[in-house]
Amino acid sequence: MKKLLVTGASGFLGWHLCQLAKQQWDVYSTYFSHEIEIPGVTMLKIDLRDFQALKHLFQQIQPSATIHTAAQSSPNYCQTHAEESYAINVTTSLNIAGLCADFGIPFIFTSTDLVFDGLNAPYRETDPVSPVNAYGEQKVQAEEGILARYPLATICRMPLMFGMATPTATSFIQPFMQTLKDGKELALFTDEFRTPASGTTAAKGLLMVLEKQVQGMIHLGGKERLSRYDFGRLLVEVFQLPATRLKSCRQQDVKMAAPRPADVSLDSSKAFHLGYQPLSVREELEMLRG
């Protein structure tokens, strides 16, 4: 069985990816601060910012491919901790790309829809980037640096992701549901649009990209453009949550450290043509409800 190195098993996407990848690959996955066990996956504790440790890891495992999902992905945290988040989001990503280039193996980097400013959606792979916050800026620097260092690398721009909580990570729906179950008010934006996909769907997309040896840029968004508020309404309906506490608000009414783009919907037709098949958000939520 070929060896696949997945960084960031304790993150939401990394965990979902390991669950699927272990069916076809001998998976090795890294974690740093949140210890985690995934049956059928070899777990390795490492600080990815330590280049010597990283190099040693590659020599030890000799992976056939690498998918890099580890990141500091909270836009507000990146905005207020620019240097610390740059080290993991940019420097580490370039180091991993360089090692994959040295080993001549496929390298898939998970980027974000937040590389766009939200003024010209839906976005295709060829559209110019113009991030409005530090997190988006770091992902752009990583994308450009990776392709300069390793032109055969793959950049997968990921949408807003949701799904069941993992042992060490939640998606945005868990706090939403808890707020409503507690009888508290949940105010969601009517003017922020994304193309959400579940963690499982996103992981399937990454494995498809690896299998089909896609190189360069590809978008792995869902099929529907939804506002946060529309998403909340679907969530309330499918999980039969108290709807009266769901309220609408606008981005400008909420003060956040990181500015947020209004509409970063992705046009993922390139991936759809290759066989990427996200379900509708309603179907995804119904599957989560079980």
Rank of each mutant, 00 (worst) to 15 (best):
R228G: 00
L274T: 04
L206H: 05
V264T: 15
D230A: 10
L220S: 01
C249H: 12
D263T: 09
G221K: 11
L234K: 03
V209K: 09
R233S: 02
Q277W: 11
K204W: 12
P196F: 06
H273Y: 14
L246S: 01
K204S: 07
D230H: 11
Q215H: 14
A258P: 00
V236F: 01
G232D: 03
M208N: 06
M256Y: 05
G205D: 00
R250C: 12
R260K: 15
K270H: 11
V254F: 05
R225Y: 08
D253R: 12
P259D: 07
R233E: 12
R228A: 03
A203R: 01
M256D: 04
D263Q: 12
L235H: 01
F272N: 07
F272G: 00
A271H: 10
D230L: 05
L220P: 05
E237P: 01
S265M: 10
L210M: 09
Y276H: 06
A257Q: 11
R245I: 03
P196L: 09
R228F: 11
L234R: 03
V209E: 01
T201K: 01
L220I: 13
L279H: 07
G222Y: 08
S248A: 15
F272W: 15
H273C: 09
D253A: 10
L235Y: 06
V209M: 09
Q277E: 15
L234M: 15
E211P: 02
G221M: 10
F239Y: 11
E237I: 02
P196A: 06
L279K: 13
L206D: 00
R245A: 00
L207P: 02
V209Q: 08
L210R: 08
Q277R: 13
R282S: 03
A262E: 14
K255F: 11
S265F: 07
G232H: 06
R228E: 01
L246Q: 01
G216P: 00
P242R: 06
L206I: 07
R233I: 03
V214W: 14
Y276M: 05
V264I: 14
I218N: 05
K212Y: 12
A202S: 14
S227A: 01
D253V: 07
L241D: 03
F272T: 10
R250T: 15
G222A: 02
